[in-house]
Design a protein around this nucleic acid. Structure first.
Lengths: 125, 125
DNA sequence: CCTTATACCTGATAGTTCTAGGTATCACCA
DNA sequence: TGGTGATACCTAGAACTATCAGGTATAAGG
């Protein structure tokens, strides 16, 4: 349970990894869903750019719930159990922060990638 | 050595993780550098948005060299050894492909994040 | 001579994601 | 009645990354 403070982090946040977490939070913030539905939703909504399997989605759901960022309601539809997850207030806070950090990092990388070979006279050592 | 074909991949590429690899290739494509210089360069050029330590950079450099994507030249400056890395032609090819995939994924995520709560009537099962 | 900065490197650990399984219910069809 | 496929959930094990925390060695400055 790393204390992820923006100020005193000396390392990169989890955003190079934590993309599934971010995506789940965002999709569930749009509308509550159950796990199986999420798996298909991710593929559909990203045009197959992202495809997280069940083995990725379910553990993340459980982790987020245990952290109080998600809550689930068990419903039984046609004999099948469904756990419909929705974002809690603190989950929404987390989502906002995460989305912002992701955007920041993505922009930094994008800027790097777009810059051609530079001839900026860097006073190297 | 997974065969990372765009067509028949059923999973996500390494880009959720392989950011250091991408960044190193890009920076070295701009101008050859040695490892220690890279570490500082990443922080500086991304405005501290990214900060990969030596423990991350050196292994990646070695991996990329062993894959023929980088080559190094040993030089001795003021008694200190330096291994200056530069990108090979196949490294440049890899860089282009990687950068493109990253952009694609980043755009997909960004689109997700920007979309507000949607009311699209999804004919849910 | 001792500390700091440069420059390189690695081992152990922690964390994430993927693969590949597993269970159970229902709908459909023969 | 029995089989198959879709739905819906779950987990263990493996693989991979990146970090942390160390290590070596040279040169410069006090």
């Amino acid at each position: 349970m790393k204390t992820t403070r923006l100020e005193n982090r000396r390392t990169n946040p989890d955003f190079l990894n934590g993309v599934p977490e971010l995506v789940l939070l965002k999709l569930l913030d749009r509308r509550p869903m159950h796990g199986y539905e999420l798996v298909r939703s991710i593929k559909r909504e990203t045009g197959d750019a992202l495809a997280f399997g069940e083995g990725c989605v379910y553990p993340v759901l459980h982790k987020l719930e245990s952290q109080g960022l998600l809550e689930s309601r068990a419903t039984t539809v046609r004999g099948r159990e469904r756990y419909v997850y929705h974002v809690t207030p603190s989950g929404r806070t987390k989502l906002k922060r995460s989305a912002q950090e992701w955007t920041e990092i993505a922009r930094a990388i994008q800027t790097l990638l777009q810059g051609g070979n530079d001839d900026t006279p860097v006073a190297s050592t």
